[in-house]
């Protein structure tokens, strides 16, 4: 049978990019995502296996870049691991074979909509959207926060660069909120 044609979280064929003033919002459909949670009492084993497989497992509230795997902390002994979708669509299978029974691994790719935000400085935008003290946080800071009633993950990649993971079903509402805030600020 013919292969199914995917839609983006915003319901389109191609990823959406929106610009307003200095801000660019880019929907990312090329990220594979999985949760990795250490099995009870197996944190050390997991760390070992992860190191071998080049899966970073950063400390609380942080994101760590890597190739092909990057990761951010989401909960005690739990991480979200990112990888390029093209090569790692089956991220769960890949991680399961690398980490074996040290961790519980669950597909998260399509649970989220990913937006990359870029501007010279995102502080003025983000202060209208969430209670994160963005300016004071270091690059690599990762946190869960609330934007317009939606629970999102916010990762700081620089003063003017951040990635948001929001609930996929609310992608349109989240984008609308960011755009509205952007028009309000700039």
């Amino acid at each position: 049978m013919a292969s199914l044609q995917p839609l983006t979280a915003l319901g389109r064929r191609e990823a959406t990019t929106v610009t307003h003033g200095p801000l660019t919002i880019s929907e990312r459909t090329d990220v594979a995502l999985a949760s990795v949670a250490a099995r009870n009492g197996r944190a050390a084993d997991l760390a070992k296996a992860a190191q071998k497989a080049d899966v970073p497992l950063p400390g609380p509230a942080s994101h760590q870049q890597g190739t092909p795997y990057s990761a951010f902390w989401t909960a005690p002994e739990m991480w979200f691991v990112e990888a390029p979708y093209a090569s790692h669509e089956l991220i769960v299978d890949l991680l399961k074979s690398a980490l074996a029974d040290t961790a519980s691994i669950t597909e998260q790719t399509d649970a989220w909509v990913a937006f990359d935000l870029s501007a010279h400085d995102l502080t003025r935008l983000l202060e209208r959207l969430c209670n994160v003290d963005f300016a004071a946080r270091p690059t690599g800071y990762a946190t869960r926060t609330v934007m317009e009633h939606l629970g999102v993950y916010l990762i700081k990649h620089g003063p003017g660069a951040a990635r948001l993971y929001g609930p996929r079903s609310s992608a349109e509402s989240l984008l609308h909120a960011i755009e509205t805030a952007a028009h309000s600020v700039w």
Partner: peptide, 12 residues
């Protein structure tokens, strides 16, 4: 003490 891990996959 139980070995249980949870994650929502509603939207996945």
């Amino acid at each position: 003490e139980m070995d249980v891990q949870l994650i929502s996959t509603t939207e996945a």
